[in-house]
Measured scan of single mutants.
Amino acid sequence: YDEVAAQGEVVRKLKAEKSPKAKINEAVECLLSLKAQYKEKTGKEYIPGQPP
């Protein structure tokens, strides 16, 4: 859960800094992968601010 939240912060920071699109896309792919792992382990969708 904490990893997903941390990666979400990374994506937000990159977007706020107007980073190159390729770098943002890479961070988003990582975030989506973490969300998929979270769902696989818990059986639930990741919802920000609602730990399992």
Rank of each mutant, 00 (worst) to 15 (best):
N25M: 14
Q37P: 00
Q37G: 08
S19P: 08
I47L: 11
E45H: 09
D2R: 15
P48G: 10
L14G: 05
V4L: 02
K18C: 09
T42K: 05
G43R: 04
E26R: 10
G8T: 14
G49A: 10
L31Y: 14
E26S: 08
L14D: 07
A22S: 12
V28P: 05
A16S: 11
A22W: 07
G43K: 11
K41L: 09
Y38A: 04
E17M: 15
E9H: 08
K15A: 10
K15N: 06
A27L: 00
I47A: 13
G8W: 15
K15I: 06
A6Q: 15
C30V: 12
E40F: 04
G49N: 14
Y38D: 05
K39T: 05
L14V: 02
D2C: 13
E26L: 06
Q50A: 11
V4M: 03
G8A: 15
P52L: 08
L31P: 08
K21P: 15
A36V: 07
V11Y: 00
G49Y: 07
V10R: 13
A5Y: 14
V10A: 15
C30A: 12
L32K: 14
K15M: 13
P20L: 05
E3V: 05
K15Q: 14
K44D: 03
E17K: 10
V11D: 01
R12K: 12
L32S: 13
A5K: 13
I24Y: 12
Q50N: 08
A27Q: 05
K39V: 03
S33F: 11
K39N: 08
E3H: 05
L14F: 09
V10T: 12
A36W: 02
D2E: 10
K39I: 06
I47N: 12
V28H: 13
A27V: 00
A36S: 12
L32W: 07
V11N: 01
A5I: 04
S33V: 10
G49V: 10
P52G: 03
Y1A: 00
S19F: 11
L34E: 12
E40V: 06
A36M: 12
G8D: 15
E3N: 14
A36P: 02
A27R: 02
Q7N: 01
I47T: 12
K18V: 02
Q37A: 14
A6V: 03
E45L: 05
A27S: 05
V28I: 14
A6R: 14
Y38T: 02
Y1L: 09
P52S: 00
V28C: 06
S33A: 13
N25K: 14
G8M: 15
G8H: 15
A22R: 10
P48V: 07
L31D: 10
